[in-house]
Design a protein around this nucleic acid. Structure first.
Lengths: 188, 188, 188, 188
DNA sequence: GATGAATGAGGTTTCATTCAT
DNA sequence: TATGAATGAAACCTCATTCAT
């Protein structure tokens, strides 16, 4: 493997994996992923040692993509609420813009194929988010609860929100804001 | 009369499925499930037409098990908060008592193998819960949000709670109560 | 097995076998045959030791049914042509009346499951037909050809005739007669 | 470039199928066919999408092989009888030379696995034969009978002939000629 | 005798991965 | 490096037959 010859092909494979997994789940055949990516079946294995590695890389890629979103235009100097709201909407915007990616991310999350090591590497990149939330955790409602509870709660409430936005896309903006208010009221 | 189809065997298969799926995911081989249930490979198919049906029935079984829990000792005449707290703790108790079942339930949830029909049948059994939550939905914080948002939010926050209880089993009772307070404060 | 308890059930099974084999070929499951016959899967095996025996018996039954037809009203004292014509039409009438039986008979014929012994037993019952045809064989066109050639030729030409009658049922009578004339002209 | 799909392997599989089907019928396992062809079980499916396709292709292959025989040295300018006799003997020569192929062809013929489309494609290739026989059909004995009756009759009488040649191989040439005379006398 | 659940060998097909080209 | 044919283990499922009831 060593040096990767074509980053485009690598991306195409990951992209194709998202589509295929959306359609048929994690059991999606590597051959189909390769075909959709426009490469030969064997080529996939010059970019990823095996299917498990492909899925782990995909998991990482998706997480990083989200974190990149959050970090863009992050209001480092804003109030806690302002920063929390930024994280909240960045996440949701991404999830709404790429529903397939979100779905795949969910599947990978519950799967045993993603190694602890991969999960650790993903966590490392969450810097900004964690900073904000650890600040939240020391305050009021969350005091005494384990660190990370806020993040988990947010993730959880976002799930609920996304589900409803999927069903009522027109009310999107209102739903995002109303849901954030619930979230914020709970944690404040 | 021939031997009659035994509910015990059916249960054993579902039980075995929970174990196997916990270990290797939804790809768990039917042959292994059968072996673990103590029946021949072919016998599994006299109880479930095919793997998909097995998984759908398992999904239903798990959901019903939870709902049965919730309905036991349900304080029909209690205050809204009292009823919400009952639902909250029943759910969590079950999830904590049977972590494998919860894990499998999660996997099935995100899987495309569970048909809309199965999901509908499961939803039908949620009577008590829905009544309570629809009452919640007409009030304060949730007014104007789609019906069902409360349920989804609870489910979501419970996910977060369970995750932490799994990591800190000793603080179980405290976590359940603290998390409920967050939840209640958000929705009230 | 010994004494057969219910000839009706035996018949029902053979009848059901005809239907099932018509639909899915000789691979028709014994379980389906049994169900269609209105008996349990296991019951089939009290009437026939195994599937092979069932098929052999079916083969025999079908052959005997045809021979019975031919023997009914057989013009023992008619001319050779008259007798040949009787055989010709009896056969065709049966095949047209029971196209499913004919189809199954064909399938069994080319199958290796029918033992030489069964074929021999069937042949034994062909008395009248063979007498007529052996008479034919000593004459004109067939002299010097192996005994049985006439029968085979008739069977073969009837195949052709049936195929066309199946497609043009209205011309049935005319086709039967025209085809017989061809046959007769050839052998005379 | 990777290894290219080899026509030899494809042929080997079809050839192996002929042997296996001769021995155990259309239920012959694909695994055995593959082994006999000297390829891995999975390889069979890179040449044929599934067993049904394999059988359909085999049917086609066998038919085409016969038609190729008939077309070789076809006496396009010969008399009608001369051309009919050529068809007659070409067919029989092939059937006698490759009794296994003939047997398999018979099995496929009565099987429901061969699609109408495949049968149509096979029919398309029968050009020369059909021309000759349609000419026959307009004459004497066959006038008024559906087109194709001559072909069917020939096929049928050849069946009878082959059966006898199989039992009396020494009289082969004589039988072929005598049988043709019967055929010709009938249709003339 | 009748039943139909139970069995497990065996069938077809899929698929991650290898490797000749 | 890229290709895709080749591999063969393993998956799901079927089915003739047995046997407890």
């Amino acid at each position: 493997m060593a040096r990767i010859r074509s980053p485009e092909k690598r991306s195409a494979i990951l992209q194709a994996a998202v589509h295929e997994i959306t359609e048929v789940g994690l059991g999606a055949p590597t051959a189909k992923i390769a075909r959709r990516a426009g490469v030969a079946a064997g080529t996939l294995f010059t970019y990823f040692a095996n299917k498990e590695e492909l899925l782990n890389e995909l998991y990482l890629e998706l997480k990083l993509e989200v974190y990149t979103r959050v970090n863009a235009n992050f209001p480092h100097k804003g109030s806690l609420e302002r920063r929390a709201r930024h994280i909240w909407s960045s996440f949701l915007d991404w999830a709404i813009e790429f529903p397939e990616k979100r779905k795949v991310s969910l599947q990978l999350n519950v799967s045993d194929l993603i190694t602890p090591e991969t999960r650790r590497r993903a966590a490392v990149e969450r810097g900004t988010i964690d900073t904000t939330f650890s600040e939240l955790g020391t305050r009021g409602a969350l005091r005494g609860l384990p660190a990370g509870f806020a993040t988990a709660t947010m993730a959880a409430m976002q799930e609920a929100t996304m589900e409803f936005i999927a069903k009522h896309p027109k009310q999107r903006e209102a739903l995002i804001e109303r849901a954030f208010q619930l979230f914020w009221r709970a944690l404040r």
